[in-house]
Design a protein around this nucleic acid. Sequence first.
DNA 1: CCTGATTGCGCAATCA
DNA 2: CTGATTGCGCAATCAG
Lengths: 180, 180
Amino acid sequence: MSDSRVSSVIQEWGSSYPGQVHGQVLSSSNQGAPTNQMSPMDMMSYSQCQGIMRGGAEDREQVAFLSYTSGSGGSSHHQINAQQDFSPFLLPSLRAPVSKRVISKDSAEYRQRREKNNIAVRKSRDKARRRVLLTQQRALQLQEENQKLQVKVGQLSQELDTLRHILSQRHLQGPDEHGL
Amino acid sequence: MSDSRVSSVIQEWGSSYPGQVHGQVLSSSNQGAPTNQMSPMDMMSYSQCQGIMRGGAEDREQVAFLSYTSGSGGSSHHQINAQQDFSPFLLPSLRAPVSKRVISKDSAEYRQRREKNNIAVRKSRDKARRRVLLTQQRALQLQEENQKLQVKVGQLSQELDTLRHILSQRHLQGPDEHGL
DNA sequence: CCTGATTGCGCAATCA
DNA sequence: CTGATTGCGCAATCAG
């Protein structure tokens, strides 16, 4: 595991730095047993219904950029929480942003959660990659099989034509009984 | 292809490293028209051959620090930069970390480059998503076609059998002249 | 060298 | 609540 030599350098930024938001640094994950099973039917498509807003992500970044005060008030970013709870009348699905437990980015718990998520992400992406790969291979395989089948259909058709021709000739001579 | 899980380790260093530096590379371009063309055959797989070498490439990475002198924030930390780069003796391809232009993260240029790259990234990923989608659809389509072809082969085979049977019977009755 | 394209990765929001 | 997904930005590379 010569891999990451960075895990130990993570939480230094402890105090006040305006620049970059997340100072991601991780790695050091081992994946002994990738339990990536990938259920049989996993093919889903990309919900491509969000191409309208393009600046959104950036907003987040910008905001984080500015407000990040890694101390205790850490979790900074978008999410305007400014309602008085009339929400129950609007959409049942739109819950008021119940103030979530504020987790400082310094906390060990935070890092712990992050690390777990990072592992999950890697796992998920590995899975996705394998899935794509499998789909590609399947497509190629199907294409091959397809060609073979088409050739076969061609052969059979020709053979049929031949036999039909022969039969039709026999017809002229002694039409006994015939199926088709 | 590149790294593994060690790439993004550098985001905030306050290190003052005279030489070494990596210059991030970005881009500046247009973007009006989504020229996502996706050349005909773009299907390539995930070069999953990146787990073996962990040292060499990394060295270069290790050395990649910028001297980042941020205006407001004192971000500072990490990186063990321990080697002195004797690489020129190893592989001719491993160039000494020629100090690249130091680009402060505050600079407008930096943001500009980042933004360009972000756009490129989105574009590339959109393309990838479409590609995957197409592959999936193609696979499904091929599968359908395959089934149809198999059915057809079955039908033709049966028909052939029938005709052969008929012909063989004719044979028994009046073997005049016959093709096969 | 510069520039756009890729790609692994971490983050955060969301889903399940 | 926890793991899985997913959009996004970053940085390192690759490809011209």
